[in-house]
Every structure is written in C-alpha cells, then in structure tokens.
Amino acid sequence: MVPYTITTVEWTTPILLSGYVATNSIKGSILQIFNLTLGILCYIPFVKLAESVSYIRMINSFRRVCTVFKENEEKGIVSTLISRNDDTGNISRFLTADLEYALKNNKVMLFYQPQVDYKGDIFGVEALLRWKHDIYGYIYPPLVIALASEGHLMDKLSYWILNRVCSDLNKMNKLGFRNIIVSINMSVAQLENDYFVNNLQKSIKKHKIAQDKLEIEITEQIALRSSKDIRDRIMAMKKLGVRLAMDDFGIGHSSLMYLKEYEFDTIKLDGSLVREILYNNNCRDIIQSIVSLGKSLNYSVIAEYVEEEEQRDILYELGCHRYQGYLYSKPLNYDELIEYLLDKCKSKFCG
C-alpha cells in the first residue's frame, strides 16, 4: 500500500530522508526514490531536446557567419562582423573571445604542405593556419584572420604565427633539414599591423634562423590594395633578407606591374591556370610565358594545386619544375611533416 503522510517535512530535509520523515515508514523513502527517478526519466528527454535545438541554432548561426564572410570576400568587400547587432554579430563575438583563449592556450595550429621538384626532392613547405574550434570544428582561415583584425588580436596572432614558424624551422635545422624554406601567406590585415616587421625580426633573432629560409607570400590583391605603409613593410622585410613571393600570379597587367615594383624571389601560379591545364591550351601558353619571364627576371615558379601526374608532366614540359599539391602531400602537422621529411630525405637536405 501507498504510505500516508503523517507529519510535515521541513524543506531543508535531505530528499532521501524526507519520505521516511513524512510517513514514518521505509516505504515513504522507497516511494520518494521512485518519484525522483520517474521525474528524472521524464525530464531528461526534454533537456536533450533543448540542447539539440540550441546546438542546431548555434551551428546555423555559425554557417550564416561563414556565408556572409565568403560572399563579401568574393565581392572584395571587407566584412564587419563583431559590431553587428544580430545572431551573426553574437556568434562572431563568441568566436573572437574563443580565438583569444586559443591563442593564450596554444590551441591554434600550423600545418605545413611540402613543396617538391620534378624528382620529388623537397625544397620548401608552406605554413597554413588552422584553428579547430571545440564546437564548430576547423574554422575557415581567412575568417580567423578577419576576426583577429576586427577583434584587435592581429598583433597577437601575427606574432604567434611568426614565432611558431621560426621555432619549427629552428627544430628542423637541428634535425639536419637546413635547406628547407618555409613560406607564410600574409593577409592585408596582418601586413597593416604596425608591429609586423618588428615581430618578424624578433622571431628570427629569438630562434636564430637564417633570414633567407623564411618567405613571405602576398597575393596580387594585397599588392593592388596596398598602402604606402604596407609597401614600406614589404621593403623592410626584403632588407632583413627575408624572401618574397607572389601568390595566385596570373598574366594580368597588375601582376606584371608588381613584378617591376617588388623584387620577388618566387611566383606561385594562379590555381585556375594549373587546374585547367589538362584541357585549356591558353592556360599552357600563359604558364609557359610566366616561366620564360621568370628565367629572365631570376625568380622561381611554383605550381600549386597539382593533384595528378599528368598535370605535373605538362608543367614540366612547359618549364615549371616546382610543385605543391595533393599529388605529393596534404597539409601536415609538424610531427607528420618531420616523419614525411625523414622518409623522403635526400643527402642534399641533410647534414
């Protein structure tokens, strides 16, 4: 039988004792435990449903942030995200706070994609920024840069990248890989930072690396939009002895003009030229022209997005002998890179 309540119970009475106190019977405690268990079992599905709905809303809001950013990126518009008074702004502010925490706790990563010649010998790697968020997974790198810029974290992020690259390069040197060149792709926001060149110099000095084993990549869009301050910083980098590369190089008038203005050491072919090389003769002619110009102006040419042997073989026939892409390797974290280098090590890279 269900026990009757025979006395009042104070609200401070422990829940497992309250049934016994109220009924003066062990049956009261058993009933209380049963009611508690039943209540929890009924409540849990609603909690899980609420958590699921909240998670879906967060993911959808995050996707809207990415969509807004990429749409503006395609149009050449600088995105303003943090100052918005909507879900996009809320998520952007949360992401920026999480990015600051990640920088402080070393949760941002660098991956490296090998660069090789026709024989498969490794001459360099490109450093690629990666941030894996606990909820949203890997965040689109240009979005990370944009949030850091708008959230006044660019100095911290740029210094972290430069310091980590120099640290990893120093470790590679100690392992015998002294001829590897590490290239770093820099955005307008990073180059606009007043402390960029100073951070670069500090990182080089701190880790005691050769300046000519670092290469800063800029895009044609950066050169096109660059202010006097950015041009001065590029020139200051060159004076330090750091190498300079132009990424996504085409055959347009602006590309050719910047070859004259800056002393580039490396030109990286526009990805669309490499992707279409198998079936577009115009792309082949353009690449051949760029390679020929490179020989005259004394810069090397690297083809990115090389994914098939047929692409590589056509590039080789056109005079391009340096490649980067999934045909050789995906981007690797530092430990994976060292394993890759050791596996592919040639005598000219060691000792």
Rank of each mutant, 00 (worst) to 15 (best):
V78F: 03
G76F: 06
I82K: 01
L103F: 07
I91C: 04
K104T: 04
K107T: 06
N105W: 09
R93D: 02
G76D: 11
M109R: 12
L95M: 15
R84P: 07
L103H: 05
T88F: 08
Q113V: 13
N85W: 01
F94Q: 10
L95W: 09
V108E: 01
D87E: 15
T88Y: 07
T88N: 07
A97M: 13
D87L: 15
R84W: 01
T96Y: 04
L99A: 10
L103C: 07
P114G: 10
N90D: 13
S92L: 01
I82W: 00
L99S: 11
I77V: 14
K107L: 14
R84T: 04
A102V: 09
V108R: 07
L103Q: 05
M109Y: 12
D87N: 15
N85C: 06
D86S: 13
P114T: 10
S79H: 01
I82L: 04
I91E: 03
I82R: 02
E100N: 14
T88D: 10
N106H: 10
E100V: 04
V78P: 00
K75R: 15
D86Y: 06
K75E: 12
N106A: 08
V108P: 00
T80V: 14
N90H: 13
R93T: 07
S83W: 07
N106P: 05
V78R: 13
L103K: 02
Q113P: 13
Y101V: 05
T80G: 10
T80A: 09
P114N: 04
